[in-house]
Amino acid sequence: MSGPPEGARERLAAAQVALLRALLENAEAPPGFAPERLRAQAEALRRKRRRVVANLRPELLDQLGDRFATLFDSYARQHPRRTGTTARDDADAFARWLAHRDDVPRSPSRWWHRFRS
């Protein structure tokens, strides 16, 4: 099978990685992109990722309340999702990140026994 021309994959890879860095790691905008659009896209990606994590770990949203979004966004900027990890890995990593910062109780027991009938 005749593949793409010499260097095409490399050129595309460089361009796509630069865009991903700008969107996921807050890196500098690659030339030719409208910065405000990159910000909007980056925000949309984080919002989607945040919603997935909130669905998987609603108790974190419950504990953090209004701080959930801000905290998640600063976690997300430091930790782009790596290829090969699942959404559940992401949610668990966020919970560990929070516990490490003492934003939520380390042990789940506090809310675990909150309700038993």
Partner: peptide
Amino acid sequence: AWAWCWPS
């Protein structure tokens, strides 16, 4: 396993 009511 855990039970918890929203919002807590």
